[in-house]
Nucleic acid binder design. Structure first.
Lengths: 221, 221
DNA sequence: ATCATTCTGTTGCTTTTACAACAGAAAAGA
DNA sequence: TCTTTTCTGTTGTAAAAGCAACAGAATGAT
């Protein structure tokens, strides 16, 4: 557990909390940890979960394979981000998605009911944590809305441009890297890979952008 | 303010809280209320908000009109639901969407910072409220993920079927009504209205469903 | 009751996407 | 290093979506 504390300290979730306090919080909340190998499924659609999870290290994809085998990547989780927050509600039904580790990953488990119920005075940073979790869920919410705004674009070209320009804005640079390969990007935007690849090359030929592997550069209109 | 208390009592947000306590909570949290006429914009893209809003009465659409005039309905808000939860994070930037009243509506404003900071003992149901808000945001989150799963379907037909079958499941009946007219449903699913209308009629002719206005019935495969 | 407006279904045409298949490049493994 | 596997771009074809335009139905206003 101790080895994740320094990682956690840098996350939004524990911002403003010292390492010692993080450790005592983890104890106070009786957090558990589990590690996953690359490619391993942390959870599968249909399982029931109640804990709130925090990714301490690695990288996860929240994804869904439908009846016909199409894969959709709903979200990518990076260290310090939470997931499973939609299932902390009592009687919220089974997990709708798969959670798979795309790298060696470590996940912390929190009993959310306990976080919300235990009197804040029990551990001095409790109030702070509640606030931070709140903010983190809000951020996640915003990210979901943002993804919806990409997907609501009607054409593959527009989907690409809205995602890439948002990413450029987020990383504050016209040159940036994305966390997906082509197939993953296509799954994320819910389009066909080859059609997307085609469109990317058209955009490049039209001088709107350039790319090398997953490094992109956008040019002014 | 008082007139909304009985409405609020029936919402998830205030489940388990009596009317008197709701009233004292509203006072304790110094909630403000504002009413909006049908068609009126509660907020516009670009504005800055910090409060958490609860819809006490009426119906709102969270929507976005893009550069080329395409309208996208991101979400429908019904009484007892919250919105603006993505903007309670400090420095979270301007509102990305418009919020428009599709009926006569009343909105309550809460200072979230205050809810999270004030000691729970200040008002006996504070802890309960925090927990309920948490659950509500989680539910909202789940709804967003659900919407993404509709939109990630590749064809208009699949988008329709996934939305309608989910709605049937949610309303626990193969006959149910949806809160959208055709154009709104198309905007919600991000497809072309006429193509969608066409597809609906094909599905009806194939005996998979039936509809009259916004009342739908699904049949077994 | 009449008129105007909005909503819905329908059609034909054009553009775009999905799909399948393949080949070279890059990466991973032996 | 050599081999195998994965990744990416490219092309042609069939299917689907977008778009525009229109007419009847339903709704709302005067």
């Amino acid at each position: 557990m101790k080895k994740y504390v320094s990682l956690l300290k840098r996350t939004k979730l524990f911002s403003g909390v010292g390492e010692d306090d993080i450790l005592s919080m983890l104890n106070c909340l009786s957090a558990a940890v589990r590690e996953y190998h690359k490619g391993e499924y942390a959870f599968r659609q249909g399982e029931y979960i109640r804990d709130l999870m925090i990714l301490a290290a690695g990288r996860l994809h929240i994804q869904k394979e439908d009846y016909w085998g199409n894969l959709n990547i709903l979200n990518e989780i990076r260290p310090g981000e939470i997931f499973g927050e939609a299932y902390i509600v009592p009687n919220s039904g089974p997990l709708m998605n798969d959670v798979v580790a795309v790298e060696e990953s470590a996940v912390l488990f929190f009993d959310m009911e306990r976080i919300l119920t235990v009197c804040p005075s029990a551990c001095p940073f409790h109030t702070r944590l509640v606030k931070n979790i709140f903010y983190t869920i809000s951020d996640k919410n915003k990210a979901l809305v943002q993804k919806i705004s990409y997907m609501s674009q009607r054409s593959t070209r527009e989907k690409l441009l809205s995602y890439l320009s948002d990413e450029a804005k987020r990383q504050n640079s016209s040159s940036f890297s994305i966390p997906f390969n082509r197939q993953q990007l296509a799954d994320f935007l819910s389009v066909d890979r080859s059609a997307m690849s085609n469109e990317l090359c058209k955009l490049r030929d039209e001088g709107m952008l350039n790319f090398h592997k997953n490094e992109f550069t956008l040019y002014e209109g």
